[in-house]
Design a protein around this nucleic acid. Structure first.
Lengths: 189, 189
DNA sequence: CTGTAATTTCAGTAAATACTGAAATTACAG
DNA sequence: CTGTAATTTCAGTATTTACTGAAATTACAG
């Protein structure tokens, strides 16, 4: 990390590099992305090289990675050979992309693996129990995925609305009871 | 990976080892945990050593790691020196622990870092823009965290209820509108 | 086309992470 | 206590992952 970065931006970049590395994202790529997100203007590869003090080829590979995640857009400028890169301007859009990509890369394959194991006939009591747990996993992951997908449909405005709905999911459950008229007065806790 | 494991269980163990490594969890620790989750009976360290074909010391370190995440419980048996380890019997309980631990380890520090950067006075236009983005991140992460915390309060039964609520968050927003009588008829899409 | 300024690729190297075996420590039955 | 069967620690090593510089490739202005 060498030139140009103010301490404020540098702190943020370093932090997200660190976080990235804890979530299975290469530290340097995390830093690159933080830099792009925090920058109003699109950056070219050399800007990043200089800002982070890493090699040009490393930046090239990192950008390739970010492109494969569809986390960056590429911009041409008239009469310029260089490419400029930028992150989506809305943080929620970024989150949606991340969720979607991880779903494709990790969740879907996991569901598929579990599904395949669940159609096998258990060979003994162990396997029977194991399948039980796998089934629970499958259902939980599937449920969370479905909800997440619904939430992803929201734009920033409606997201805010949902979030202001208040801190209590309990209310949602109560609503459900009231709306659907499910007789017993259950609470969410 | 050597002894005893049936192909079904082995596949699952390998898959979750792989997934773990993509989420910043040591592959072997992921395998160990899958094994524990799939096993009805608690396992001792040697069981794991044998099942995964890794060294006893590696198992010891892995179990230490899993303990620090509070993902395993430890059981004594009368007149036995050995310790037996087991995972929670409910997959949703496991998920709640994972969410909670990652919040403590990664989300809270991130929010704290962002908060510190946000109270600084921006030194130039760049920093002003950067702070804008940081504020959006802060708010999004905080919101998601609050919701997640609410959802974590649910037990398996109520979770099922919430999830059966249906695939449409839109419905929740509609409920909100109806219940709170917010005049305009907005939709969630 | 041609020259140039950019990007990409990749073999080699560096750094970080994970794993092992041996030694030290611990727990407890007798 | 003492002996033993277990666990933990840790220095050294192996493996994996990340990074670099040099060479190859590409895009395009002129």
């Amino acid at each position: 990390m060498s030139e140009k970065l103010t301490p404020m931006i540098q702190s943020c970049v370093l932090h997200f590099g660190e976080m990235g590395s804890r979530w299975g994202i290469n530290r340097t790529v995390g830093q690159m992305y933080a830099l792009l997100v925090l920058s109003k203007e699109p950056l070219c590869a050399d800007d990043i090289t200089e800002a982070l003090g890493i090699s040009r080829s490393n930046v090239s590979m990192g950008l390739k990675e970010l492109m494969s995640w569809e986390l960056v857009k590429l911009q041409h400028r008239q009469g310029e050979r260089r490419e400029f890169y930028s992150a989506p301007g809305d943080v929620w859009d970024i989150a949606k992309i991340l969720i979607e990509q991880r779903r494709k890369r990790e969740i879907d394959p996991t569901l598929s693996t579990l599904r395949n194991l669940l159609i096998e006939t258990p060979g003994n009591a162990n396997e029977e129990y194991a399948q039980e747990r796998m089934r629970e996993m499958y259902e939980l992951i599937e449920m969370i995925t479905l909800w997440t997908q619904e939430i992803q449909r929201l734009d920033s405005a409606n997201l805010g609305k949902l979030l202001k709905l208040g801190s209590s999911i309990g209310k949602v459950l109560d609503m459900k009871d009231r709306l659907l008229g499910s007789g017993k007065k259950e609470t969410s806790k």
